[in-house]
Write a protein that binds this DNA or RNA. Structure first.
Lengths: 105, 105
DNA sequence: CTGTTACTGAACTTATTGGTTGACTAAATA
DNA sequence: TATTTAGTCAACCAATAAGTTCAGTAACAG
């Protein structure tokens, strides 16, 4: 699994995206993150582990509480990959073809 | 699985991203897509199936050949999700917090 | 008509995912 | 000190993913 693989895989689950959305508002503890969901805290803890393995979230322990916060870099890479091909999706196909062919020599 | 789940899951595999990169240059047959990879054509066919189930690629049959081409909409949704939170990653946290809180009333 | 090419489908294997429960450690509180 | 709270870890389960092989269909080429 490459970094990009892990990032997109982490984003492919609605629970994990909801966690990211909440963390975008600021740091949160694991129990804060878990409370809205209809699943065990262990399950949420596992989702956070997936996010942190992918480097999207960092976890720091203060007392008995773990605080989670977002990490920018890997998600920026995913955004960059998508926006490169966005050129195609928005219709300016020819310029993208030139862009990609340009990389190959 | 929601549409966004499927889109991100489809993008989480390097082989599938390579297929998308090739299709960004234009339509290609399944055998064209399969040839660069060190795996069976059946495996590549399955990857294309994942992409087409997610709506990222459309397949049309002409004669005995299947031609694949990119579909914009679902990937744009993924890009949109990411760029919403990009506001955070690029550092302008306060404005994102206002943006998200604004959606909730 | 015969052979080859372009695929699909079914059956199978192995690994990973997303969830559970129960037992545990560590920190705060009464 | 005793209890609750925050969280992890290990074991387990069912479902899915990513690959394989083999057999088959459909279309083109000789």
């Amino acid at each position: 699994m490459t970094q990009l693989d892990q990032t997109f895989a982490a984003l492919s689950d609605g629970t994990r995206r909801a966690i990211i959305e909440k963390l975008a508002l600021g740091e949160a503890s694991l129990s804060d993150l878990a409370s809205p969901f209809d699943m065990s805290q262990t399950a949420v803890s596992k989702h956070v582990r997936v996010l942190s393995d992918a480097g999207l979230v960092s976890v720091t322990k203060r007392g008995r509480t773990r605080y989670c916060s977002l990490q920018a870099a890997p998600m920026k890479d995913a955004t960059d990959w998508l926006t490169t091909y966005q050129t195609f999706w928005t219709g300016s196909f020819e310029s993208l073809a030139r862009h990609i062919e340009g990389k190959e020599h």
